[in-house]
Design a protein around this nucleic acid. Structure first.
Length: 483
DNA sequence: ATGTCC
């Protein structure tokens, strides 16, 4: 375990574990945290995992740790590692089992006051239209050919099949489609699991949530995003379901032989990896991209379900019940990107696991309305607490490979959380706070209790103080649908 | 996160 004495303070909210801490480190570990969040990070294996990650072949500059960090499979959730392309490695564990887990935000023109009498009905309609829970199947059934189309085309598949509006696409990271995704690199078993799960939410901390915009911090950005104080928005947090999970499992197993073949020394088997330019590394990158496209399409189908729920609830009741897409952004991905590091342009594979891409102003992929502002960043809080809309900055480009935090971050294990409160009690507490809850399982609900998570406001204050994100708006939940 | 062990 790492001790506080091993960590050097480098600024008000920045810390470093120097390369000299352990002989096998290739780069230092840089941590964004206040004193309290650092102490939380020292309590589990997350910083040891960050040090382990700092031994990966081909790493560039440093490993980054976000304030919402907690331990994960081999690599911390809340970690960023960039490896040189193409001779560095790619590691499935440094991307996560839920490939392209991410958040989508949609804006409405419905004021909370106006919607209040219909919110119980809206929560019910969302629950009925959006299947949730582990292993749950959706209304969309895909042939193997269709699923191959989803793998290659992501959100474009959704647009061609009536699940998207034209304007949704440019407001999605990568326009909802990662290139060079070849379904031949996906196992038949993953394909089988993927066929029935498109347009489903899943379990754990995945949710669909109706929020109201509680406070705007950046009026120019909020206007570009269609966000106004007191109005409803819809947030979707989910990923690639059993499809991405199966792909990660397959490659964690298969790449073990690549580790031996390329004689890669690892401090932890869970960091299994392969060179980006090896056949094994290329196959994983392609399969991961298929899962990413599946997740984009999944969130897009959920949007069409949610639009139906809004129509069923509000048609004839409010003048305009349209949901316009603000943005869709991943927080579990490996991306090939160009970055300026110490004055030099480098091409790297940025592994972001529980870390959100946060590119600064001038980024050409962004739609014009956002290009001068920076990339929108969506940070979901824990259930029953605030969520945040942020922007990427020049600072995130310089300090964290264009990345920032992704959420509140767990402090209590699922098991401990379940023991600490009963689901039905928690539901009552949240109802008292004006939050409608539809949950598939009361045990699952207890696992997501707000007190099992860090304070999302403290996390956001660290990243904004460090300059790796900028505040746009704070959202407050009024209805949550989860598995 | 995950047909929470094929």
């Amino acid at each position: 375990m790492i001790n506080k004495g091993d960590v050097v303070r480098t600024g008000p909210v920045t810390w470093e574990i120097p390369k000299t801490y352990r002989k096998d480190m290739r780069v230092p570990v840089r941590i964004f945290a206040d004193e309290r969040l650092l102490n939380a990070a020292l309590k589990d294996k997350s910083l040891t995992q960050a040090v382990n990650a700092s031994t990966l072949p081909g790493l560039v500059s440093h490993v980054t740790v976000m304030p919402d960090v907690h331990q994960g499979y081999g690599f911390p959730i809340g970690g960023v590692a960039a490896t040189s392309y193409p001779e560095g490695v790619i590691s499935p564990g440094a991307i996560g089992y839920d490939i392209n887990c991410g958040v989508r935000l949609l804006a409405s023109q419905i004021a909370y006051e106006e919607a209040e009498p219909y919110l119980d009905d809206l929560a019910l309609q969302l629950d009925e239209n959006c299947p949730s829970g582990v292993g749950v199947k959706g209304s969309v059934r895909l042939s193997v050919d269709d699923l191959e189309d989803v793998c290659r085309n992501g959100s474009n598949w959704a647009l061609n099949n009536g699940y998207a509006w034209e304007d949704d696409i440019p407001s999605t990271e990568e326009h909802g489609r990662i290139r060079n995704a070849d379904p031949r690199d996906v196992s038949p078993r993953a394909m089988e699991r993927g066929r029935s799960q498109l347009g489903t939410l899943g379990g754990g901390n995945h949710f669909i949530e109706v929020d109201l915009v509680e406070k705007i911090f950046d009026h120019e950005a909020a206007e570009a995003m269609n966000l106004s104080e007191g109005y409803l928005v819809l947030q979707i947090h989910c990923g690639s379901r059993g499809f991405g999970h199966q792909i990660c499992s397959d490659y964690v197993r298969d790449l073990q032989s690549a580790v031996r073949k390329y004689k890669i020394q690892l401090p932890d088997r869970e960091l299994v990896c392969a060179p980006l330019n090896s056949p094994e590394g290329e196959a994983y990158l392609s399969a991961m991209s298929c899962a990413a496209n599946y997740a984009f399409a999944n969130r897009q189908v959920l949007v069409s379900h949610a639009r139906r729920a809004f129509e069923q609830t509000f048609a004839g009741k409010v003048a305009n019940y349209e949901l316009t897409q603000v943005y869709d952004i991943a927080h579990n991905m490996g991306k090939i990107e160009d970055h300026q590091i110490e004055g030099k342009q480098v091409r790297v594979c940025v592994h972001r696991k529980g870390a959100t891409r946060a590119f600064g102003p001038g980024f050409s992929e962004l739609p014009e309305k956002y290009r001068h502002l920076g990339q929108p960043v969506l940070v979901p809080g824990s259930m029953g607490t605030a969520s945040w809309v942020l922007l990427g900055t020049e600072g995130s480009m310089l300090q964290s490979f264009g990345s920032t935090c992704h959420g509140a971050g767990r402090t209590m294990s699922r098991k401990k959380a379940k023991k600490s409160i009963r689901g039905d009690q928690l539901r009552k507490q949240l109802m008292k706070k004006g939050i409608r809850i539809h949950a598939g399982s009361m045990a699952g609900l207890a696992e997501e209790a707000p007190h099992a998570y860090k304070d999302v406001d403290a996390v956001v204050n660290v990243v904004t103080q460090a300059g790796i994100a900028k505040k746009v708006a704070r959202l407050r939940p009024v209805a949550v649908i989860k598995g």
